[in-house]
Amino acid sequence: MSRSPVLTFTDRGIYCPSGDFHIDPWRPVDRALITHGHSDHARWGHRRYLSTEAAAPVIRHRLGEIDLRTIAYGERRTIGGVTVSFHPAGHVPGSAQIRVEEAGEVWVVSGDYKVAEDGLSEPFEPVACHAFISECTFGLPVFRWTPQAQIAADLNHWWAANAAEGRTSVIGAYSLGKAQRIMAAVDPSIGPILTHGAVEATTVVMRNQGIALPPTTHVTPSFDAKGHPGALVIAPPSALGTPWANRFGPAAEAFASGWMALRGVRRRRGLARGFVMSDHADWDGLNEAIRATGAERVFVTHGYTSVFRRWLESQGYDAGIVETEYEGEEAAEPEPLVE
């Protein structure tokens, strides 16, 4: 007799029947286990939340008064009939994969992850399992990232060249994760680092929890924006091209995202410069991570799911697709460019 699977897929998200909890649900539920603080994973309206200690400050900052308990990486906790534990996903500081074990059968939900170290997030840790639920945002073989050191060198070169020409460098980056990754990667001796409010708020939260980040200056309405030539301005992508971003005088704009690997995407956004910098696994990273789990069953979600599933099947995996709220099929470059 076959028993019910450890995790099932419902219209609220991934659900564990024996533990009676959801993972990253998109509709209000009683108990939610949260992989990380990005808004498509940590949503408002659940009765109880559980996240890693490192992810909690940002989640609290974003969701306000919620019932949030925390768990350390690797700590095992029993919920109903299952044992859960959280393991580093390398996506952003505090991000986790969630391991669920029931009667010796182990399932792992990857959340968002990347295999390469970014110098800021807890490095990705492969977790052996029978079934692995993997994101595949960049699940096509045209996505291959350059090493972090090379990206940092390119960023510094761009910033220094702009500064030498008396221009401000304005870079679009998600305010949680990517923005801080840029701060940590660049050489602060080139000039001051200025931040948009959304970026500054998250940065302050992370700094307060002990993450080492260089000094930043918040660009407030009264701020003398033209008085800092040669500065690096970090702002959310949505601020690029707006009056907010145009206040710094002569400036060069760029965007840091995995999507910048595609020339067409960069040109569509009218950007002269794009830095290929992603917090998701690239093609090789996805394959490497899946292989390392030793899983025979793989479910894919978020991204080029149908293509990636077919690829995994051709590699001998028993592969399926988890539909999420917004995607009936593969999402080709979502708008805004969500990562």
Binding site: L140, P141, V142, L262, R263, G264, Y304, V307, A332
Partner: peptide, 8 residues
């Protein structure tokens, strides 16, 4: 499959 995503 990758070609139409890249577009070139």
């Amino acid at each position: 499959e990758a070609y139409p995503v890249v577009g070139d």
